[in-house]
Amino acid sequence: MPKVLKAEGMNKCIGCFTCMLACAGVNHRNHSISKSAIKVRTSGGLQGKFVSVVCLACKDERACAEACPSGALEKRPGGGVILKKEKCIGCRKCESACIVGAVHFDEDENKPIICKHCGVCAKFCPHECLEMEETANDL
């Protein structure tokens, strides 16, 4: 069964950003949290709550893929999309199509940062905020 990332324990988040460092490191071979597909931030300064902005793994219709003019975003089994870098022209239409703001744009690469639902962020979450959940294949 395919798995997708669920960030349902964000009430336990301590804001250590380890998930972002791990995602940027493993998926982009980069030290910068700017390269992470999951973004943890506070709403309203540090006194506000921690929230995560990450791909919700839309099933059936994927707005980002629909918006892509070059077919670079293919449906991922179970939800979300897979980025085919060689097909991407860097037009940023996927970024604006995602209404939860989970498609980030990598200015250096001129490509979107797309969550693969690989689970590395959940593996390096020390406080069980993030989990991988099994889901039915919708394709």
Binding site: I14, G15, C16, F17, T18, L21, F124, P126, H127
Partner: peptide, 8 residues
């Protein structure tokens, strides 16, 4: 936590 510290 501080950034990069899993302890918190």
């Amino acid at each position: 936590a501080c950034t990069g510290c899993p302890v918190g």
